[in-house]
């Protein structure tokens, strides 16, 4: 019997916005419980899909995601997770159905206005030129740097403050002058998240942000993203690690072959039956809520 297990997140030192999450170590028992979730603001500012369909990738799907929550999208390879996330970000034109932000359809929104509302981190983030961490993070401010007279144009001071806050949140202030090519995998992943945070989006969508991260860095990143959700942001993550989704998401969408199989709180959406049905694996959950592990059987 093998076991997949992870525990409560390790917050980054000195992070802004995570001060309410107690410092802890991975694997240590008896942790303080997470702060109570703020009630989701139903309807207002929600990111919704109505009968969204993409040929050969997603079957008609309806869901409404709420700010203040961490929503995980799970499913086997080729289930349509990344397509759904890209459609939610307004980056994929659906063949049918609509994506809405609040009451407004995303398709009719000017690209820069959409970019100010929804931050997106692709599955394999790239940086073409060997810039420093600070320059990379500053690129996250691009949606705010339009025509100088535009109402949404940010002043240089506002840009600088947002970049500082993002660097601090991801504990990257000491790395600001380091070239991206000289970062470790975990540091590079944090720099990419900081780039998205610098844009101060209301929604943060990330496609497998924990891939290639070791357990400590993955737990720390999840802790930061949870803190962002508690601060009122909507966080949507594509996750392969079911234990991460079970322990840290407020809501889980399970996809299989482009169809929505389950949608609800993690205990319900990731039940042993669903895991067997979707992944074809016999498994059961061990442990207490918040620190559960998936034990494979047979």
């Amino acid at each position: 019997m093998s076991e997949i297990r992870n525990e409560k997140p390790l917050p980054f030192r000195g992070g802004v916005g995570v001060g309410d999450v107690p410092t802890c170590t991975v694997g240590a028992g008896g942790q303080a419980p997470p702060p109570p979730p703020t009630p989701p603001l139903k309807g207002r500012g929600a990111l919704g899909v109505q009968n969204l369909a993409i040929a050969r990738r997603l079957q008609p799907l309806t869901a409404e995601l709420h700010p203040g929550e961490v929503t995980a999208i799970c499913g086997p390879n080729g289930a349509g997770k990344s397509s759904l996330l890209a459609a939610l970000a307004g980056l994929l034109v659906p063949d049918a159905g609509t994506v809405t932000l609040g009451d407004a359809p995303l398709a009719g929104m000017p690209p820069r206005e959409r970019a100010r509302a929804i931050g997106y981190l692709p599955q394999a983030p790239e940086v073409a030129w060997d810039m420093t961490v600070e320059v990379l993070v500053r690129l996250g401010r691009l949606p705010w740097q339009g025509a100088p007279l535009h109402r949404a144009h940010a002043s240089p001071a506002e840009d600088a403050a947002a970049v500082e806050a993002a660097l601090a949140t991801m504990d990257l202030s000491a790395f600001r002058q380091r070239a991206v090519s000289h970062l470790s995998g975990g540091e590079a992943a944090r720099a990419q998240v900081a780039r998205v945070l610098a844009g101060a989006p209301r929604w943060l969508l990330a496609d497998e942000p924990l891939a290639n991260l070791d357990l400590a860095h993955a737990a720390a990143l999840v802790g930061t993203l949870r803190a962002e959700a508690r601060a009122g942001r909507g966080v949507v993550l594509v996750l392969h690690d079911l234990a991460m989704a079970m322990n840290h998401a407020d809501r889980v969408l399970v996809l299989r072959q482009g169809a929505l199989i389950a949608d609800g709180p993690p205990q319900q959406a990731l039940s042993a039956d669903t895991v067997a049905q979707v992944w074809g694996v016999k498994a059961r959950w061990l442990g207490e809520p918040g620190s559960m592990a998936l034990a494979l059987e047979g």
């Binding site: 983030p125 940086v127 690129l139």
Partner: peptide, 20 residues
């Protein structure tokens, strides 16, 4: 110029930053 800056993060990330 700004579009080129965004594009240095790849096509998808650039579009998510508002690039047309």
């Amino acid at each position: 110029g700004r579009g080129l800056d965004a594009l240095s993060l790849g096509d998808m990330a650039a579009r998510s930053l508002g690039l047309d």
